[in-house]
Design a protein around this nucleic acid. Structure first.
Lengths: 210, 210
DNA sequence: GCGCTTGTTGTACGATCGTTCAACTAATTC
DNA sequence: GAATTAGTTGAACGATCGTACAACAAGCGC
């Protein structure tokens, strides 16, 4: 107290906010909602206890900001792409090893568990998800129209999203038995089964017959 | 204290244990892991504070018992059924309105979030899941063998489980847009797409073309 | 230098957390 | 009916929770 012996790091509000968001994601990934406490987040960020309530209205507000950042890629614009490239990009992004490691998946799971409970989080989730789903329906409809395919685009979109989320879930809860590439391949195979053949952006591994 | 004015309900250990489990599920369904506290569970069960630790070693032990009960149906024996009936029964059970209401789905989500963190829960989950998956692979293989179908049973099983879990997730987080019957129909349509036609145990609603 | 704004710290507070435990009540045994 | 067993209660404990707040430090205009 009397002597200032350690560094006093001063940063811009924007910088600090994003650091706290990153620290929050790390905590969620480590131990789910139980590890998402003021103490642990501040310790993770290397920051004193009172700082979160200075930069965010509450702990819940931080959680909303975290979710907003995590879902940002879902509504990213894929401007100059064909419908096929859009879908391929979505699938490949979903199973990108850099962002969908186990820690991130655990963070998703923890937040999903809160979506049903917290109003603000629920609202943001609905907004993000609807747009995400709409993009997919549009792309599928465009392909079907161009190739005279009779498909239920809404149903296919719902199934594809469910497949992606379900594969994340399986991979998160027990990663043994299949790889991220297997999961990607499953998605392309699913679309192939209903008559939509899409070339992956990255190459797929060899398929192993039983 | 001096005067005993309210009922003192005495039950067998087994009865009380199952009541506490039910109360725990209700709490998880209401508010996720945040609502899974000794105080709230006891209040839900209409029981005093110290009783949980009398019937269970710890709060975590109660959670394990809850998950054991919730996953029981996954490994239930379907003795006299054909492979097709087994799969149909699994799908229909998964989207049974009685057990898969929103509250139960929220409870699942909350527990899934804990599986990655708690060792005992993780072990139980792996054990239950592997058996569940094996049953599915066996049924699919039996069908494929009998009908000369060339399928990757492991991959199909993984996709079907992912589809079911993903549809639960979608329905839990935003039930608008589709019903449980739609979800059931999606599963049958998925299998149909890869050449396995299965008659649902209950009738499916009319398919609405776009 | 001084005043002002803004980022940061650490303590303090009341609430709630999971667990323990001695006391108590009802059923059972002898 | 006394002794024993088993189910239940509620107070108590230390730990930790989220937030509030006064004190402090650094940057900046002047």
């Amino acid at each position: 107290m009397a002597v200032k012996d350690i560094a006093y790091n001063r940063k811009t509000a924007q910088q600090r906010r994003s650091e706290l968001i990153a620290a929050g994601v790390a905590c969620l990934g480590r131990g789910g909602m139980s590890a998402f406490t003021i103490d642990q987040i501040c310790k993770q960020a290397g920051v004193s206890r009172g700082l979160i309530n200075h930069h965010f209205d509450s702990k819940e507000a931080l959680l909303v900001s975290i979710y907003a950042q995590m879902t940002e890629y879902l509504v990213r614009e894929h401007a100059a792409a064909t419908p096929r490239q859009q879908i391929a990009s979505l699938i490949d992004d979903s199973f990108d090893a850099a962002s969908f490691n186990k820690s991130n998946l655990r963070a998703w799971l923890a937040i999903w568990g809160q979506v049903a409970t917290h109003a603000e989080l629920k609202s943001l989730h609905r907004q993000r998800y609807l747009r995400y789903r709409l993009q997919l329906v549009d792309a599928l409809t465009a392909i079907a129209d161009a190739e005279q395919l009779a498909i239920d685009a809404a149903s296919i979109a719902r199934q594809l999203i469910a497949l992606i989320d379900g594969l994340w879930l399986e991979y998160c809860l027990h990663s043994d038995g299949f790889s991220l590439d297997d999961a990607r391949a499953d998605c392309y195979r699913f679309l192939q089964g209903i008559g939509i053949v899409i070339q992956p952006e990255q190459e797929l591994p060899e398929r192993i017959e039983p």
